[in-house]
Nucleic acid binder design. Structure first.
Lengths: 167, 167
DNA sequence: CGATCATATTTCGAAATCGTAATATCTGGC
DNA sequence: GCCAGATATTACGATTTCGAAATATGATCG
């Protein structure tokens, strides 16, 4: 059975993972660590729950990840003045430098891919991604009858999505 | 920085993972286990190294995965008569039944997504996936000079790709 | 044939991830 | 202000994954 969407996307994801891991390893971080640093460069300081949603790990996994990064003095945790339950994670100076290199790496990769596709292909790609979002979000039929479900609930956020935390 | 390819694909992959995990959990298996069973249904019996490439794990990870599945009598290992170094993994009867249910699940998901996109979008999607393959495959310049590299070597196989093992 | 190199798999200890159960703070009635 | 429920994070033990080294067979070449 050849799946026209699932198989290619699984394959591509793995290719991307291997490729980037290769590069980030040279910088001394895993891909998750790299992703986190890069995210913080654009959007930090950010509360942990936000990072958790961005990376898609369990909260307890994030604790470990952050402990390690903090141990290496790449990030640091501070209490969130606006919410005593949470901590804000920010980059240290060396974390910033590293984040910058990671970001450049990722941008290069993205650019290389974009170079190989035209705007129309990109648009088709986007539509397929949206269709996946639609299907995963919408629960189709509970066996019989009731319950219209779950449409607005906990979606998976894009790395770039972000609530304005503020003001 | 919003990445037009990396971010959506990361997000979609996570959505797919969560969605399918939800479903396969009901069947009592992880997504990797499900993937493996489903693959075996179509292409088994298969040697371990092939499964390893399909799932994209380290060999030692596969050993553990297979140990667990074998312990539950869903698959079994037999020596490969054509190659004394390898083992062939095949489905047991109950493994087959489970694999069948998994396959149906995945096919339904695929169908639901396909319903939301036209052929043109699908084509664009395909071209982007290919572009990713191209970029990850081709090692661009070692700092100076030598070594033209790596083009034909170990690519990441599609779940559906398969050498004819045969004859 | 025998040496050497490549391939297939497992073993084993270390590290990452997870699920669940604390702990602490916030929020909205009352 | 106080209680109940929601949110944010961590602690901790269990499971999974990993990397490196070990084992065993196959392939090549002299």
């Amino acid at each position: 059975m050849t799946l026209r969407i699932l198989s290619p996307i699984h394959k591509a994801t793995r290719q991307i993972g291997l490729h980037l891991a290769d590069k980030t390893t040279e910088l001394g971080v895993s891909t998750d660590e790299a992703h986190l640093l890069s995210y913080l460069e654009s959007y930090g300081p950010a509360p942990i729950y936000e990072l958790q949603r961005v990376l898609g790990h369990r909260p307890s996994t994030l604790t470990g990840l952050l402990d390690r990064l903090e141990g290496r003095e790449l990030v640091l945790r501070e209490r969130n003045p606006e919410d005593g339950r949470s901590y804000l994670v920010s980059l240290t100076l060396s974390g910033s430098r590293l984040a910058h290199r990671v970001t450049r790496l990722v941008a290069q990769f993205e650019a290389a891919v974009l170079e190989g596709v035209d705007e129309r292909a990109l648009d088709g790609f986007r539509r397929v991604m949206e269709a996946i979002g639609g299907v995963t979000r919408i629960q189709v039929r509970p066996p019989r009858g009731r319950r219209a479900p779950t449409v607005g609930r906990g979606g998976v956020p894009d790395s770039a999505e972000r609530k304005v935390r503020t003001a």
